[in-house]
Design a protein around this nucleic acid. Sequence first.
DNA 1: ACCTGAACACCGTTCAAGT
DNA 2: ACCTGAACACCGTTCAAGT
Lengths: 213, 213
Amino acid sequence: MKGPKRSLDVSKIVNAVMELLDEEPAAAPTLRGVAARLGVRPNTLYTYVPDRVALEGVVVEHLLELAGPAALAGGTPWRERITGYALRLRAELLSRPGVVPFFFSGPMNGPNAVMVGEGLLAAFTEGGLRPDDAARAAYAVIVHVLGSAALAAADLPGPGTSEAETLEARRTALAAGPPLTAATAATAAAWNSPEQAEWGINRLIDGCVRSLR
Amino acid sequence: MKGPKRSLDVSKIVNAVMELLDEEPAAAPTLRGVAARLGVRPNTLYTYVPDRVALEGVVVEHLLELAGPAALAGGTPWRERITGYALRLRAELLSRPGVVPFFFSGPMNGPNAVMVGEGLLAAFTEGGLRPDDAARAAYAVIVHVLGSAALAAADLPGPGTSEAETLEARRTALAAGPPLTAATAATAAAWNSPEQAEWGINRLIDGCVRSLR
DNA sequence: ACCTGAACACCGTTCAAGT
DNA sequence: ACCTGAACACCGTTCAAGT
């Protein structure tokens, strides 16, 4: 048995990124950090990946997969498939906030992105939308879930602070704001909660279904 | 007339950021770049701003203002006020893609953010929503417009490529994809267009209004 | 073909020092 | 109070060189 010609491949690099995120979920992985974890020099990674954006794209593909796009294909009612995937993806991202910027650093056109798109299209079609509306609806859902995840990640408390006290501080601040804001401070303070993300996605789907006529 | 005690203030710093964005809209402004443009050492900025995230927060506030939040308060039908502000904000961001990440680097709780929230609340209330639903709807709109802007910015072609050929390349790629994707390739390829952003926001508002009952 | 050594041109941030 | 000099600990990326 002769030794391996190469010690690395792209999937090992992605694994290293995921391990870094496991250890420090809020820290954005860097090429140098990934290389160090693999016991290799930073420039070695350029043998496998053209640049940082490309590596981030591969990680994005991995996360789209992690959220279980296969479940989009069928089995449960169409609407649950959509909200299910959307909320699973959001949860995966928010359990690793450091990865969120990766979704906004380049076009999202890998095979898993296409598969997710196809699954959402199928679900919306099953929901009664015409093809073009289904396409618009599918991408609107992606926009919403990624926007929600990104804003929630930006709002995460630093290591010193608990989520509850951040929430309470915000509620108090909003209660001192203009009238309508003050009157809804408790709701508004939790605007980055999973519950409100679910509410938003459901309203979006409601609106899409309504455009059936 | 004695010389000024300080040569700088926060608004001059924000101006410098905006000038950098005017010159190179896709480049993310840096503290060092801003300092250089002001003819000052990088660490000088720490007299005016505690760190990079805080500076970005001030720039975010400036952009929320640029999109004209005052027009949210009244004058036109409630629904146009919402879509108008949302699409103006999106356009401001996409004419300066380098600033987009600033919206995701920290909590968005400045006075203009509160004012925008209040304006959206007023509009949705006028549209017939109960206060808590209006609050959820207001923030869902923000989520959607910022998500849309961020994904569109990530999809922008590099300096070498035109928008039209990027679109055409994507359409061709999607046409070779799975069946539903292929059937809607023309629509799907333009998923980051302003038209589809407007479609998405309108569907979201539709869905919110429907939750009146 | 794969990996390294060394360098380049950057970052944000700190701290003691000058005025 | 404001700004600087100098340094620290980082980045992504390149290129020639070694195996």
